[in-house]
Simulated assay, not measured.
Amino acid sequence: MHSHGGMLGTFTLIALTLAGAVYIVGAAGQRRRGHPTWPLARTVSWIAGLLAVAAVLVGPLGHAGNHDLTTHVLGHVVIGMLAPVLLVLGSPVTLARRTLEPVPLQRLGRLAGNPLTAALAFPVVAGVLAVGASWLLYTGTTAADSTRDPALHSVVMIGFLLVGLLLTAGVVGVSAGIRRSPRWLRVAVLVLATAVLCAEAVLMAVGGVPGIAAEQVPSSAVALAVGAVLYAVALGAVVATERRRDARAAREEQDLRSAAAARSAAPTGAGQEARPTDGAPVA
């Protein structure tokens, strides 16, 4: 753990470990609950996303607080672009719907359907937040400050994670529990966001970053531009395959309804199995 570990680093490790453990337990118990086996690819994606977050907040890339801007930008790309894609593709909301009891499931539904959540995850709003945060950081003095202040660095990276999750969920749509916007709008937001980030990278390379040594800027600008393009390509691939994901989501929804119907129709007697008599249906 790096120099700004302390309580924040310990809390981060505990939170990430719990998130991984709860997910694995939920995924492993699907057959016992009458659901199909949870796809291994989703579990791998979720765990990889958590590891990406850990690498930035308490791992090697966390040392950006004591190093150069390039490491800082790489941390931004990993936690604000790579990790959100991996976490959202882990389909945690779908897993929760297949695992939680009715009361906490209703609360989750209210949270996902909250107008504020829907507004923040609307692709245009999420895109403005994600791109705006990056633009403000690298055109002002905050970038320089966060490469020297470990606590500020952690706050900045957590902010990138949150806005990255919003944008990714807004673009991916239903697999994250967010109502999907029209495809043309999501693609347009991706293209515009990538263009703005690449323009930002060019401005960084040409005009520099306040408070940062000039020799650190070119590689940082390249890292930002390449990360933005790869993020757009990854999300574009997800959008391109959404029909297949829709079909799978429909099957999962049917599984959920069938399991709920089976539970509601199950006998409630004191440990005795009800049997039909005289041809009468079981209540």
Rank of each mutant, 00 (worst) to 15 (best):
T139S: 02
T139M: 01
T139Q: 05
T141I: 03
A143L: 04
A143S: 03
D145F: 11
R148L: 05
D149Y: 00
D149Q: 05
D149K: 01
P150Q: 07
A151R: 08
L152V: 00
H153T: 03
S154D: 14
V155H: 01
V155T: 06
V156R: 06
V156M: 01
M157F: 10
M157N: 13
M157E: 14
M157Y: 11
G159Q: 03
F160P: 01
L162I: 15
V163M: 06
V163T: 11
L165H: 01
L166V: 00
L166H: 05
L166S: 06
L167W: 10
L167T: 08
L167C: 06
T168R: 08
T168N: 07
V171Y: 09
V174E: 15
V174R: 15
S175R: 15
G177T: 05
I178F: 05
R179G: 13
R180M: 05
R180Q: 13
S181C: 05
R183C: 00
W184I: 09
W184H: 06
W184V: 07
W184Q: 04
L185R: 00
L185F: 02
L185V: 10
R186L: 01
R186S: 05
V189Y: 07
L190C: 13
V191T: 11
V191F: 09
L192I: 15
L192D: 03
A195K: 08
A195Q: 09
A195H: 07
V196N: 00
L197E: 13
L197N: 12
L197K: 10
C198Q: 10
C198D: 13
A201Q: 07
V202L: 15
M204E: 09
A205M: 14
A205S: 15
V206P: 03
V209K: 12
I212T: 14
I212G: 11
A213M: 09
A213P: 07
A214P: 10
A214I: 06
E215R: 14
P218V: 07
P218Q: 09
P218G: 04
S220T: 14
A221K: 13
V222N: 06
V222W: 14
V226P: 08
A228G: 04
V229G: 03
